[in-house]
Design a protein around this nucleic acid. Sequence first.
DNA 1: TGCGTCACG
DNA 2: GACGTACGTGACGCAC
Length: 945
Amino acid sequence: MSFGKGCHLHLIDGSAFIFRAYHALPPLTRKSDGLPIGAVAGFCNMLWGQLTQNKGKTGPTHIAVVFDYSSKTFRDDIYDKYKANRPELPEDLRPQFPLTRDATRAFNVACLEMEGYEADDIIATLARQATEAGGDVTIISSDKDLMQLVGNGVVMFDAMKNRTIDRDEVIEKFGVPPERVVDVQSLAGDSVDNVPGAPGIGVKTAALLINEYGDLETLLSRAEEIKQPKRRQALIENADLIRVSKRLVTLDAHAPVKETLDELEVRDPEAGPLMDFLSQMEFRTLTRRVADALKVEPPAMAENSLTPGHVDQMAAADAPPQPETVPFVHADYEHVRDRGALDRWIAAIREAGRVAIDTETTSLDEMRAELVGISLSVVAGQACYIPLGHRQGGGDLFAGDAPSEGQLPADAVLAALKPLLEDGSILKIGQNMKYDWKIFARLGIRIAPFDDTMLMSYAMHAGQHNHGMDGLSERYLGHKPIEIKSLLGSGKSAITFDRVPVDEAVKYAAEDADVTVRLWQAFKPNLHRAAVTTVYETLERPLVPVLADMELAGIRVDPNVLSRMSNAFAQKMAGLEAEIHELAGQPFNVGSPKQLGEILFDAMGVPGGEKGKTGAYATGADVLEDIAANTDLGRPADLAARVLDWRQLSKLKSTYTDALQNHINPETGRVHTSYSIAGANTGRLASTDPNLQNIPIRTEEGRRIREAFVAGPGMRLVSLDYSQIELRILAHVADIPALKQAFRDGIDIHAMTASEMFGVPLDQMTPEVRRRAKAINFGVIYGISGFGLARNLRIPRAEAQAFIDTYFERFPGIREYMDRTVAFAKENGFVQTLFGRKIHTPEINSKGPTAGFARRAAINAPIQGAAADIIRRAMIRMPQAIRGLPATMLLQVHDELLFEVEEAAVDDLISAARAAMEGAAHPAVHLDVPLVADAGQGANWAEAH
DNA sequence: TGCGTCACG
DNA sequence: GACGTACGTGACGCAC
């Protein structure tokens, strides 16, 4: 029949199918010859699902799978950097591409691709033809680039979420209807495809602008009218780039597609070729399933030719369903409301030997959080939620605090789960397990053993993306989980999880456990493939209980010391503010860089004001220091000097003496920070809420804040910090004999560098010469540049460059290390520490200023990362090293560990902790330089450090 | 929410 | 020859 009214065309985005399949499945290989085949397997399963699910009256009359032909398209001629950020194709995926075409043909489905065009263009063209002929179109994809096609008989279908994307969904995602989607995309750009867009404008702002002005061209022509200066400038200055972006994102609905719609009519698969293909691929279960459906005999395949670990693993009847092939169905999640249901779950967990677990609580602060419920999942698609502390009222303050219906008593549930959670033969799987670990620890349960999908991702993907659950789910499972905001709201009106109605909580919470178990299934086999199993098992996972215990312990902070300081700072600031207003000749907000800049450079006429990209004058400390030092200026110099003082006090007061008081836990009288293990790309920890890794020390006034961090009665604080650990690592990895010898001999490394560079004997060294050498030593670690060193030392650039040249001449190994590291990054897309930690450098091959950043980051990462690895190793061994001593490890500040210890045991602690720190690289790495840890102790942190 | 600023290693 | 530059973090206040 000829395509027309009543016909329904299904267009499957083939490339999306392949990538989803690849990332979701373990690296399966064909048993007979080791050919990588996982993506093909997933692709076939998904295609078969499409063909069978949609039989019937809503099913397609015409169907095609559409592929990208190659990476080069007409868009590369429009913009040479198009898709330049795309990561390299994985080695084992490349050979699977032609096989997916074969698969499509084997299923007797039209297989379309065209040189010079993306699959999206072909889809756009066919969709146009089909709707013009009066038919309907369903595009099987969730790619946002296709959303511009929705409407007038075209819908999209997200096969992963089993959800239709229509006009309303598009409006929800982009804030504009489908026909305006390209306008929004042109403005917002796309970092994945490297569509430039306008800087500083995201989807939200873009939608706002388009809705106000109607369309992109009107907006650009009336850009002058935009009130916000930043937006106005971004649009005016980037009009050309925005128009280029529009050409990039606009799909070509008139591509010269050879195939006619009629050729795409649905055809039944021919049993012969399809059976041949599937058995050739050695997909046992799928072959059988298809054979059943086609009512033919499956071809003979040796039963024992397939073994677990290969294709058969995923196809075996009792194997866990693969995340990719199991849809997310919220209605399937179970509300555990009675003892029988709980016992069934416990039995299933024991049977499986593993469980994904997630807790819901009343707060993100684990020290204040009350347990509200627990969710569990054993296999993809099946999960439950056990509500424990939900209250009626759902945010209505007058509805009372009565417990919700359908909840088991918390203590009984915890008593039933405790043996399971502490059972050495049952693996507990979490996403950010430190959180749940602490919640359970406060309830007397110590979880072990466990896996953490966040840390797995961190070990494999550091530098590529973040490792939060929602992001990982979207990226690796193609599923966007329910947002917590949709349950709790946000801002002032946000409710706590105990006020969420139980049936809503079931969907959200169980989904998290479901996602976690799927991520685990997806990641586990890949740890090996990425060669980071050791990193995960020795540097990430064991840190969880260590950090959890440190955070639970907290550090004692004396609020009286802080409030006295706050008052003193407030007084000084008021005095300075009055003087500043006097000097300015008018009152203004000293805390506003914008107003300050206008006072200095406009009202007072200081020359040389430089405006940044937002149009405001720069008034950073370096700028103000220059003005303050220029006594010819008179009043502006005085004003700048006072603003510098005011800024310092303001910082100390707002960030430290005021804010820290609010972080003292009323029950413990201590401050409990939270360390993020997977926050910093290099392997460093980051401390938040509050950040205890940036407590002042460099100025005397700031340093006194450390006096508020005190030891308990009869206790002392002990601090041990690595001496010059990054330079020692540099000496080792760059193999610099003179530096290594200096560290062995224990000489002042900066003085020695200066002596080598400038020919000054050590005993005649001046502080100034040493200072310069020190700056160069640090510069090397940061990926030195003449400009950077010149700015740091405030010397002419040529002079700085001359120093650097001398340095490289004297220590040629440094240059070699840098070149080697950058070359490695370009070749592999990541760099590595001595301990095997990988840090990805996706921008290393870009052009322009970005290249400089990426290059320096690549040089720094192995050094900073190795130092981070070393102190991690020390921390992980510390509980054992100080066992029996009345001491607790409290804080880590990158190269420093802070302990609280009974007075009598100070010396024992120092020797035990020092031994652990100085020996931390062993036995994994034998360093050519000694590691040295310096110790201090006192009643407070200022004395101890 | 993004930016400027500044605290730390 | 010009580009624009030290590495890694988190928190605060301002301005939109």
